[in-house]
Amino acid sequence: MIARDVRPAAPALDRTILGMFLFIASEAIFFLSIVVAYLASREPGLADARANLDLGRTAIFSVALFSSSATVAVANARRDVRWLGATMLLGAIFLVGQGSEYARLATIGIGPSSALFGTTFFTLTGLHGAHVLVGLIALAALAAATTRRTRGVGPITWEAVSLYWHFVDAVWVVVFSVVYLGTFL
C-alpha cells in the first residue's frame, strides 16, 4: 500500500519565482499609484487628450507589445533564443512607436510641463516605457547568457524573465485602456 503522506522532493514553489511574483506585486502597487493619479487628473486633461492622442497608431504599436507575450511564452517553453529575438524585436517596435508618439506630441508643444495632461501622460507612459526597456535588457542578457554559456541557463531564469515581460505587457493593457481607450470610447 502506498503511503498517503509522501511529499514531493522539491518544494512546490521555487524561491526565485516566488521572489519575482512578490517583486511584480510591489511594482503593481507602484503603477497603481500613478494610474490613480492619472484618473484623478483625468477631467481637467480630457480635452487635451482627445485633441492630441493618436489612438489608431498607438493601437497598432500596442499589438506588437501584446503579441510579444505570446512569443516570450513560446521562447520560454522551447528555451529558444530565436523566439527571444522575436520578443525583443516586438518590444523594440513598441518603444519606437512610443518614441514617435512622443516626438509628434513634442512638435505640437505638449510635454511634461505644458499642462496637466502632459504631466500625467508622460509620467505614466514614460514609467511604463522605462520598464519595457528594463525588460528588453533582461531579455538580451538572457539571450547572451544562453548562447555563451556551454551549459546554458537554468529553466528558472527563463521563467523569471518571461514572468517579468508578461507583467510589463499587462501593465500596458491597463495603461492603454486608461489613457487611450478611456479617452476615446
Partner: peptide, 23 residues
Amino acid sequence: GAYPALSGGLVMLFVDRQLGGHF
C-alpha cells in the same frame, strides 16, 4: 504594499519639481 506607493508619490513630486509638472 506601502513602499511602492511612496515611490509613486515621490516620482510625481519629482516630475512637478524637476520637469515642471502639475500633478
